[in-house]
């Protein structure tokens, strides 16, 4: 496919505006379903935490707070980069946007690597239910729930980050090839929306997983 005409649109639509509205609405709909996906895990977390507050606090103390804090910073920065990239595309910029998109992806990858280190540590400490769980002590049983949910939630989240990284790289590539312009930037907008969602989910994960047991 060669460079699309600025005002090209798919045959089922009447005009580019309609296409854009549809795409954005579709993305929002998708994000709503995403919220519900994570919602189940958060609901499970809420119920278990309410039933076993101590075990959950204890479990939370096993997580790596500094690491989690840095990861949070990394993700926030990446979201910022994504937003700037979108703005740049909308203003007709090209080079900066490509770099910002790559930066977003790189920050996402950094996040994944850091989380990978955390997982390895947890494996070594024997905190992985089903694979290697060697905890002992009064709260070990209930703490297993905490880690079970921890891996479910962060695992699902990491999959989302991974998808986002790929998405951002694709956007960077397409931008470098000049596919986007001030009148046509829907894909970047959608990718950025998705990325913000991934970020927001983490904003919930961080306090629930890392902070909850450290308050008192």
């Amino acid at each position: 496919m060669s460079t699309p005409q600025p005002l090209a649109h798919a045959p089922q639509f009447d005009d580019p505006t309609q296409q854009r509205t549809a795409a954005v609405l579709g993305m929002w709909a998708f994000l709503v379903t995403e919220v519900l996906f994570f919602g189940v895990l958060f609901a499970g977390y809420a119920v278990c935490r309410w039933r076993f507050p101590d075990a959950f606090a204890a479990g939370s103390r096993h997580t790596d707070l500094p690491m989690g804090a840095i990861e949070t910073g990394v993700l926030l920065a990446s979201s910022c980069a994504a937003a700037l990239a979108l703005r740049d595309v909308q203003l007709g910029g090209r080079r900066a946007a490509t770099r910002l998109l790559v930066l977003t992806a790189a920050l996402g990858a950094t996040f994944l690597v850091m989380h990978g280190f955390e997982y390895t540590d947890e494996y070594r400490e024997g905190l992985v239910p089903g694979l290697r769980y060697t905890q002992d002590g009064p709260l070990a049983g209930k703490m297993e729930f905490f880690f079970y949910l921890y891996f479910a939630i962060t695992g699902l989240h990491s999959v989302h980050v991974l998808v986002g990284v790929v998405l951002m790289l694709v956007m960077a590539l397409r931008n470098a090839r000049g596919r986007f312009r001030a009148t046509y930037f829907t894909p970047v907008e959608l990718a950025a929306l998705y990325w913000h969602l991934v970020d927001i989910v983490w904003i919930f994960v961080f306090p629930l997983v890392y902070l909850v047991g450290r308050a008192g």
Binding site: F52, G137, P138, L139, G141
Partner: peptide, 9 residues
């Protein structure tokens, strides 16, 4: 207390 003694000590 009998089956899960460690849940409530």
């Amino acid at each position: 207390s009998i089956v899960l003694p460690r849940s409530q000590v």
